[in-house]
Amino acid sequence: MTEDATVTSTGDSRMLVDGSFDAFFAANHASVVRALGLALGNDELGRDAASEGFARALQRWGKVSRYDNPAGWVYRVGLNWARSRRRKTFRESPLTAAPRTAVAANERDLRLVPALQRLSADHRDVVVAKFYLDWSEQRIADALDIRPGTVKSRLSRALQRLADDLGTA
């Protein structure tokens, strides 16, 4: 069952009251899937990665639920899993590797998605965490297990490149 009552109205996953996994899932499903879809450049892979991330969170929920940012843990695990899987499938079976048609639905295909994909994976993860998830640099650093200074430098460089690509500079 998904009881919203276990999550405070601020919507901050750190504020989970009783650690109910289903409530946590309900609160974070959409945003984690979207974040992974953006970072990975593939909606379907994003959904799969989210599913894997949530499953691993559930496997060790007693521990993950006590993290400051369990959704960040899921985001990172999903990223790692998807990239590992992509490398593996690419290497083993190019014909059936990442879907022939990257699922992407509209204008972002020709503007944002290519621009995101031209970033390195490191930069893309940080950009999505910053500009979609709206996390602070400290929170991004915690979630991705990198130093805040690294977050800052990656954001700066990524932003410059995105601005150039999107013509928003």
């Binding site: 919203d4 999550v7 601020t10 919507g11 901050d12 996953s13 309900a26 609160a27 974070n28 499903h29 959409a30 945003s31 984690v32 974040a35 959704a71 960040g72 985001y75 979609y132 998830l133 709206d134 996390w135 602070s136 929170r139």
Partner: peptide, 8 residues
């Protein structure tokens, strides 16, 4: 609710 992971 859906966007809970996002910081308000």
């Amino acid at each position: 609710m859906d966007d809970d992971i996002r910081n308000p």
